[in-house]
Design a protein around this nucleic acid. Structure first.
Length: 565
RNA sequence: GUCGCAGUAGCCCAGUUGGAUAGAGCAACGGUCUUCUAAACCGUAGGUCGAGAGUUCGAGUCUCUCCUGCGACACCA
């Protein structure tokens, strides 16, 4: 595959002459004009005006005079810019050739050299419902994993469950007092939450409940059989409920190493910190001083000797280091924890944990309701499952209206409804906070997941009309000016894949898929693809290529692509 | 108070890392289905890019000051 930007840079370099500008400088200056009528690539001549002491307009003219237009459609000076128009038939052929040959593999690179990348994501708490708040971590983590794999890494999706802690003492106490097995079996999360809430209500007037809860947690920690069995049961019924939602979202995990998993690995952390003489006492608690990182001290042990979140995270990082020798160590956690992750990284560096320098917090903005943070206590909670079901129901309704003869309606409704929610989350910069309004989530028109899905459905529909079309052997001699924008976008895909990976930013893919879908819909509206016999196969090659790249883009986002909808 | 993130059309957001006339979507108004799926396409209208200064040939983009919103600031996770 020809690197056209490099080709343009070489042409410019020859025209300028040796030793005037660095090769890299020239390459960096080459840009894509905002308006494609200006050209396919442009070189702004401003940088040269100082060197040659001439107006950039004049320099642009001179450069064009020195360029012989071989390999280009034309090269023109427009004001201070040298604008390059690529040779469309050759370029198109080249691009389509590559996409059709590589299919879903198009854009794959090996930059990651198969390095392991554990990703901390989703992380719901046992016995609590999965809310919209968990959606972001789940869906961003899943997409980042797909993007990493596309760049040659080996992602390891780790659902760091909140499955340990004093709340289990409370839960056991509450269950034994007011619970019943049938209810929990029927609707685990709902009833477990009820017990938990009731505990907190009653505990106001009956402080002795707290003692009981403490005792049960202590029993749990010391391996009491009844306590352990109840804990295991709560955990497994919760996980079953979670997995139904994950299945709906199309997200799976490689490990569920939650807090309980690391519980027995804490003493070693403390021991290591002591060996390195990093622990200091302060106000009765054990801290690590981080003043040389310009950070507040990290509190490792409470004054009562109990461990904290960071202790567990240190244990996690050390475990991952030994287990995976990770190329990167990722945490998809809300942006409100940015400072905390700086501290964690600093402590790990002090401890000399090798992967510390490759620890990346992937932050994202809050989901709010009326501008306020979600919280179970204040009742501002939106259940993810309900939102997904609403969206699926709406998709079903649309299918009944628009395409009542569609086979597999329920499956498609799920793919479209869930796709809308996932795409809606991933479309914008992950740092943007999202003010949740249900009606805005349930939109299938304009810049949405269903729009991209629908675009590919149209492409597939055309391809079905010509069963004898063979993308392997068909003509790729596309000489179709209307298709030009699409071809250029197709050529961008491998670069987009790399950018999304470097920035841990799924929205780069989502925005790209919108651009491609939009360009295709425009083409579709203006060109009768099947009518012109002479151009038919080349056009179908383009349609097939669009379908391939749209499907792959959606896959990277974790969104399904139905063939019909 | 200190630190971090953000402020672009009525609403929600892009803006190719400093380049050409600031762009989409939603909402509004008007047009396009006997012809490859109208979940689409085309058009109209909508802007002091939070405010001010600075750097430069050139600033939505970089620097500084201020304003506004959100978040974080050791014994929660």
């Amino acid at each position: 595959m020809t690197d056209y930007k490099q080709q343009v840079a070489d042409t410019i370099k020859q025209a300028i002459g040796d030793g005037v500008l660095d090769d890299a400088v020239i390459f960096d200056k080459i840009e894509r004009p905002k308006n494609s009528k200006m050209g396919d690539f442009a070189f702004p001549a401003f940088v040269l005006s100082k060197v040659f002491k001439k107006a950039p307009q004049a320099i642009a003219e001179e450069l064009v005079g020195k360029i012989n237009g071989d390999g280009y459609e034309k090269v023109v000076a427009t004001g201070p810019y040298v604008n390059f128009f690529l040779s469309k038939p050759e370029y198109s052929k080249n691009v389509l050739e590559t996409v059709l040959a590589e299919k879903g593999n198009y854009g794959q690179n090996q930059d990651g050299q198969n390095g392991n990348v554990p990703i901390d994501m989703s992380s719901p708490n046992i016995a609590k419902p999965i809310s919209m708040g968990h959606l972001r971590s789940t869906v961003i983590g899943n997409s980042v994993a797909n993007i990493l794999a596309k760049n040659g890494y080996h992602p390891i999706k780790d659902n760091h469950l909140g499955d340990w802690g004093t709340q289990f003492g409370k839960l056991i106490t509450a269950y034994l007092k007011w619970g019943n097995e049938e209810d929990v079996k029927r609707d685990p999360i709902n009833y477990l939450v009820k017990y938990y809430v009731r505990f907190h209500k009653e505990d106001v007037d009956h402080p002795e409940l707290d003692d009981e809860a403490r005792e049960w947690f202590s029993k749990l920690e010391h391996g009491d059989e009844q306590a352990i069995n109840l804990w295991k049961w709560f955990r497994s019924v919760s996980l079953e409920a979670f997995n139904q939602i994950y299945a709906k979202l199309g997200v799976s995990f490689d490990t569920y190493n939650g807090e309980a998993f690391y519980n027995d690995k804490m003493p070693e952390v403390i021991e290591l910190l002591k060996q390195k003489h990093l622990l200091k006492e302060s106000q009765g608690a054990q801290i690590v001083d981080l003043s040389k990182y310009d950070l507040n001290p990290a509190l490792i042990l409470k004054s009562d000797g109990a461990s904290l979140y960071i202790t567990r995270d240190i244990a996690t990082a050390i475990y991952r280091d030994r287990e995976y020798h990770p190329a990167m160590n990722l945490y998809v956690v809300g942006s409100e924890q940015t400072y905390y992750f700086k501290q964690l990284k600093a402590v790990l560096e002090e401890m000399g944990v090798p992967s510390a320098k490759n620890l990346h917090h992937i932050p994202f903005g809050l989901i709010t309701v009326n501008g306020k943070k979600l919280s179970t206590r204040s009742g501002r909670i939106i259940l993810l499952d309900e939102v997904l079901n609403d969206s699926i129901a709406l998709a079903k309704k649309q299918i009944e209206e628009k395409n009542p003869n569609l086979p597999d309606k329920d499956k498609v409704a799920q793919e479209v409804g869930v796709g809308a929610i996932i795409f809606g989350d991933l479309k914008n910069d992950k740092m943007d906070s999202i003010n949740f309004v249900l009606e805005e989530q349930l939109r299938f028109e304009g810049e949405t997941g269903p729009y991209v899905q629908y675009s590919r459905v149209r492409a597939e529909s055309i391809l079905r009309k010509v069963p004898d079309f063979d993308p392997e052997t068909s003509s790729r001699d596309l000489d179709d000016p209307e298709a030009w924008e699409i071809v250029k976008l197709l050529n961008d895909f491998p670069t987009i894949v790399k950018t999304a990976c470097a920035e841990f930013e799924p929205s780069v893919i989502a925005k790209y898929s919108l651009r491609l879908a939009k360009a295709f819909n425009k083409y579709y509206a203006h060109t009768r693809i099947l009518d012109d016999v002479a151009q038919r196969d080349a056009r179908l090659s383009l349609v097939k290529s669009v379908s391939i790249v749209l499907k792959e883009s959606l896959r990277l986002l974790g969104v399904k692509s139905p063939d019909e909808m």
